[in-house]
Structure formats: C-alpha cells, structure tokens
C-alpha cells in the first residue's frame, strides 16, 4: 500500500504539487495529465527520489524520506529514456548490476539474470553491447534490470513515450503481466483501459480519481477545453 499523507511539493517558490492525501492499494494505477502538471514529481515521491516538502509518503509503512534505502529496494523505477538508466556496457552486466550491489553470491546472480532475460525473450541479446540495441530492446533491458531486483512495486514514468507502436505494445504487455503492483505515468491513453484506477493531474492537483472509463473521457474533455480556450 502506498500512502500520501498531506503531501505537497515545492521547488523554491514554485508549488508543483498542492497538498493532497491519497492511498493506493490497486494493482494497476495510471497517472495522466498535461506536461508540467506534476506527474513525474508524484512518481518520484513514491520511491524516495524526492522527499515531500510537507507531509509523509509511506510504502508498506516505510517512510520514503527516512527509510529511502529500504523503500528503493521495495519500489523499482523505470524512466522514459532507457539510455540514461543503463549503466553497464553489456546487457547481462547491466541486469546483474543491482544484484551485485546487494553482494549476492555469483551463482544466484547468474540464475536470476538468466530467468529474467528468458522471461522477456532477451536471451539472444545477453552478450550484446547495450548501445547497439534498438529503442524497444533498450527499454525492455531497463525493465528487466528493475524486475530482476524483485521489487514489490514498480513505478514507470512514461515508459513507452519514445517507442514505436509495436514496442509500445510489447512494453505494455510486459507491464500488464507483471506480478508487481505498478504505477504508470503515461500519455498513451489506449494502454490504460485495463487499469483499475486513474489519477488525472492538472496544475499540481489531482482533478479526477476514477476508473479509466470515467477518467479518460474526463481528461480528453479537459484537454479539449483548454485547447479551445487558448
């Protein structure tokens, strides 16, 4: 369970998130909203990459500000641009990176890397240099490198924005079938249809919190109204 208790976020004088309280217990939560509305900031609060200006964020009771290290082991994070999160030159080395930090035995690392690469159909890429992969393959690598850590939650910040339609579908399918709880920030509305809950952000506020059947039309209308007003 992810709990926001009276959380707000400011950068200097700029208020990016107005105070809100919220708890997320659904397995699939989507976050949508205009550029600059505060989605990424919201996502970063969940795994302690950002500490809230006021209030507390808890994941399974752990405070993200005080127990950042434990929270990060529990919550994986996948970014929009895989180029910025792949740290090792070789696919299998990169997947092993986080496990090595945990100082796990070599045999266990190898077994877990094998399992994750097999699961996402990437065995044939394991000895490839990461910089030669396609965009979709890179994002699948980034996702594998997060899932190999076996987090209980995974936050995705626009995981499909840079991908073509086929790779968008591949990534969406991988997210759909993960056993983990996922919070997904996305502009790809078509992938949200089987999510349980959608949060719509607008200028630092959550303006709609509903299942997709209600939230997506609300968001479309919101965007259309603004376009009309300009």
């Amino acid at each position: 369970m992810i709990e926001f208790d009276n959380v707000s976020m400011r950068f200097g004088d700029l208020t990016v998130l107005e105070p809100f309280s919220l708890s997320l217990a659904e397995r699939r939560v989507a976050v949508i909203g205009a550029n600059g509305s505060g989605k990424s900031t919201f996502a970063r609060l969940i795994n302690g990459l950002l500490a809230p200006s006021t209030g507390t964020v808890r994941v399974d009771g752990l405070c993200t500000a005080k127990d950042a290290r434990a929270v990060r082991r529990k919550v994986g994070f996948v970014f929009q641009n895989p180029d910025n999160q792949i740290v090792y030159p070789l696919v299998e080395e990169d997947v092993a990176f986080g496990l090595k930090n945990l100082k796990l035995p070599k045999a266990e690392i190898a077994a877990r890397v094998d399992a994750v690469l097999a699961r996402y159909g990437m065995e044939s890429l394991r000895l490839r240099p990461a910089h030669l992969l396609s965009g979709g393959q890179k994002q699948m690598l980034a996702i594998s490198a997060v899932l190999v850590m076996e987090p209980a939650y995974v936050v995705f910040d626009e995981p499909t924005t840079l991908l073509d339609l086929r790779n968008k579908r591949r990534v969406a399918a991988a997210i759909a079938e993960m056993p983990q709880t996922a919070v997904v920030v996305s502009h790809d509305l078509e992938f949200l249809t089987d999510f349980e809950r959608v949060l719509v952000f607008e200028a630092g506020r959550i303006v709609c919190d509903a299942p997709p059947a209600e939230a997506v039309p609300f968001y479309r209308e919101l965007m259309a109204a603004e376009a009309g007003g300009v």
Partner: peptide, 11 residues
C-alpha cells in the same frame, strides 16, 4: 538523469 537512475536502482 543518470544519477537519479542509479539511485533508483539501489546504488
């Protein structure tokens, strides 16, 4: 971005 990603990966 990289520094953030590395932190997110538990390093």
């Amino acid at each position: 971005d990289l520094a953030e990603a590395i932190a997110a990966r538990g390093y």
